[in-house]
Each structure stands twice: as C-alpha cells, then as structure tokens.
Amino acid sequence: MNELAGGVIEIGWVQLAISTGFVVVVGILSIRLSLGLESDLAVAAVRTFLQLIALGLALRWVFGIDSPWLVLAILVLMMAAAAQTIVKRAPDAPRGILGSSMITMLLTGFTVTFAVTGLVIQVEPWYRAQYVIPIAGMVLGNSMNGIALALERTFADLDARAGEVLALTALGATPWEAAGDSVRVAIRAGLIPTINAMAAAGIVFIPGMMTGQVLAGADPLAASYYQVVVMLMVAAATALGSVLAVMLSYRKRFTADGVYIEKGYRRAG
C-alpha cells in the first residue's frame, strides 16, 4: 500500500484503472440492454478524468502562487460560470436574468464565503486559496442549484397563474401583490432540498466534504465540525441567494406599467 505519513492512501494509475473498469462494465451493460448510453457515458467518464485532474493541477498552481488577486479572479470566474448555469437551467425566465443571477452570486457568494473563512475558520491571510476556493465552490455549487430551482419555479408558476395575475392586476394590484404567491412558492421550492439535506445529514448519508476529510485522514470529530459550518452556510447562501435572485428577477416579466406579459404577448427571439 502506498500509505503516506498523514494516513492518506494515495491513488495511483492502478487505482484509477480499477475504477475505470467498473464504468466499462456499465458501458457493456448499456450496449447489451440497448440503453444507448455508452457514448454519453464514455464522454462523461473522460470529462471527469480531464476536468478533475486539470482542477487538481490548477489548484496546485494557485496554491503555489499565493496571490490575493489570483484568488479573487478565480472566484469571479466561478461566479460567472454559476450565473451562466442558472440562466441555462431556467429556460422560461425572461431575458435579462443573467445580470441579476450574477449580482446574486457575487453578493451571496462573496459574503458567505468570506464570512466563513474570515469569521468562522479565521484563515490567515484572508485570501488563502486552500480554504477560500474549496469553500466558495461548495457555497456556489449548492446555492446555484437552489437559485436555479427557485427562478425556474417562479416563472413557471406565474405562467400557470396568469389568469389570476391578470384578475389581481385588474383590481389594482402591484406586480409584487400579483406575483407574491408565486415568489413564495418558488423560494420555498428552492430551499426544500437544502433543508432536507440538513435534516438527513449524518443519518442517511455522510456529507461529501466530511467524507473527503475523513478519507484524507482527518479526525472525524474535527471533520464533523467543518461539515456543520459548511451545511449551515450553504443553507444560508441558498436562502439568501434564492430570495435575492427571485426578487431581482420577477419584475422583468411585467411592463413598466405593471402588466404581466403573458406568453401570447412575448416577442419571439
């Protein structure tokens, strides 16, 4: 065994080959059962290899350079990618939500990440890439899912309730008064997966970060403290991000005069 001093068993090419073997078995199953998944599976497996190894190399390089500007630039890039993903996952949303998604990711991403690294973990110096980048990744990745869900739900629900929205507006309701129910439903929908994950953590599954730390040889109790911090902050980021993103976006489906733009009145393109 290639055991390291810290108790970590190093993964080498042999180990990678064994795990690839399992994916090959799934590929053979796919061919035998005519699932038609083998090419997708192959591409996905290759992407997993390349992307994660590239990430490992990139992080090693970033940790070595130790520059606050580089860390900040990477965070901004991560947030832009998250905002782009949100827009793609909410195809029914009006144009122009990229801006609000970006603002949301920047505000919640930076606030929550640096609240954890600065106030909870108290990293020295504040920009230490080894802490800041993985934590930002967890904050952004999880809140991105919740925000995309909340935005998608907001606009789907508004379309489903278009008749009620019209009736309310006709009685003099503002866009907020007409859209309020949909906004609440959507924010709730965005938060439920996070709340469920918090409730099931440690009973149904061992959360990803704790798994990683335990495998890397950390004391399980110390790892659990980290995981608590991460789960709470992910919940906070998802909640704040969903509220902010939906609040910044729902109004875009209304005209300046407060009229809900129904499907039939939207211009193509």
Binding site: G163, E164, G258
Partner: peptide, 18 residues
Amino acid sequence: PAEWRSRVTLLPQTAAMR
C-alpha cells in the same frame, strides 16, 4: 397605473378565485 385600474376595472372572462 394601479389607480387607473381601480377606476376602470376589467373583469376577465374566467373568474379567478384565490
């Protein structure tokens, strides 16, 4: 706009009950 609509009030064809 909201004041106008409160004076010139449309009742849509489908009654929307909350």
